[in-house]
Design a protein around this nucleic acid. Structure first.
Lengths: 202, 202
DNA sequence: ATTTTAGTTGACCGTTCGGTAAAGTCAACC
DNA sequence: GGTTGACTTTACCGAACGGTCAACTAAAAT
């Protein structure tokens, strides 16, 4: 990676961590630069604005989430319903770790930005919408597998159920963040099996 | 209402609308004062800080939500499951109206503040947590009614199901806000019947 | 009639905000 | 060796931020 790319990457990483642990508005360009050990002028060499940076942070977030959580959790080595269970376990462990590290359950980085920025910045809203779409496809895929495996009704609407599951997951993370209690993730997320219509809940 | 109380009320109303339609951080004390036609000095006569104002806004929000949505929707003139249907209809109509008025689905005012402020202001987080608790009790009550009416399993854990329903509602509103589409409320919220374990879904 | 109190006004504080601009550094390429 | 272009540095901009303060008005309480 060239020197310039390293600098840009530090800015992206600092911004991602700071914004996730606090919020978009509470973290300024100045602080991001200080954390990344980059001068402000350099910031604007790489990004045209704070919101342009945020869009790139969101893209990076998507890639990380897919590679480090979604792909491993939904790998096809288990039955579809067991994959969901594994996903729930990952999500739970992650929030536990965040609470240990920051003192707070941070919830979903996409959901956080979505609620804060959707009415204020159309570009960011669209980007989060696109990220949700990526997760949506993963869910549709595993739901189709569940149908094929006879775990759920074969006439179920995978697309609608995927939206329902996504919404439920976001809601659970929102409540867990509000109560600052990662145990809620473990307690509430398994109810997703009822939303899917799982025939033999574990 | 005394003159002072009227001034304070205007500040609360302006703050509530501005913060709901945008965000806590994006709305400054200055703008709230301008909208309420109150001088800045007066603001700090009534509120010790922006966050103290916000806590009072949240309290007002709770009272309005209970009186104008929860009590009418969950009035005992209908069967428990029909009350849920009525609640969904209210929630849907409200988001439609917001989109017409502001151009944006604004989602849940409590959820919005929760995700933005939970890691930054403990007083506000606690207040939102308390508001969720109020809604939670309403849900527990109707779920108990549903048990008594034989609409759901009498051995169900009303308390846990109430949390689950609350989380799902918040999640649906989050997704609807992100996609800026009120129709998602109508489409997704009815799936809550599966979370409740409703025996004869409408 | 006088004092107290609630409420109002508008100037002011230091700090930070997102963003700009110009000068300077350095390595790659011709 | 000179030029180019990527990258960095530093100073700076006007505006807004949350919050403070002292002077003022008006009405109620004594």
């Amino acid at each position: 990676m060239s020197k310039g790319q390293e600098t840009k990457q530090r800015l992206l990483d600092s911004a991602q961590e700071l914004m996730y642990s606090r919020s978009y508005s509470d973290v300024g360009v100045q602080e991001i630069c200080k954390d990344a050990k980059v001068q402000k002028g350099s910031f604007y060499h790489f990004f045209s604005s704070k919101s342009a940076l945020t869009v790139e942070v969101l893209e990076q977030l998507k890639m990380q989430m897919i590679e480090s959580i979604l792909l491993p959790a939904f790998a096809k080595d288990l039955t579809p319903s067991k994959r969901f269970e594994r996903f729930i376990e990952y999500a739970y462990q992650y929030q536990v770790q965040l609470k240990e590290e920051y003192g707070y359950v941070l919830g979903c980085p996409m959901g956080n930005i979505a609620l804060e920025m959707s009415t204020q910045n159309e570009e960011i809203r669209k980007k989060v919408e696109a990220l949700f779409e990526s997760i949506f496809y993963v869910f549709v895929d595993v739901l189709d597998d569940a149908k094929a495996a006879g775990e759920i009704d074969e006439n179920a609407d995978s697309s609608e159920l995927a939206q329902v599951c996504l919404a439920y997951g976001e809601g659970v993370l929102l409540v867990a963040k509000t109560k600052n209690d990662p145990e809620l993730v473990k307690k509430l997320l398994p109810h997703v099996s009822k939303l899917m219509g799982l025939k033999n809940p574990g």
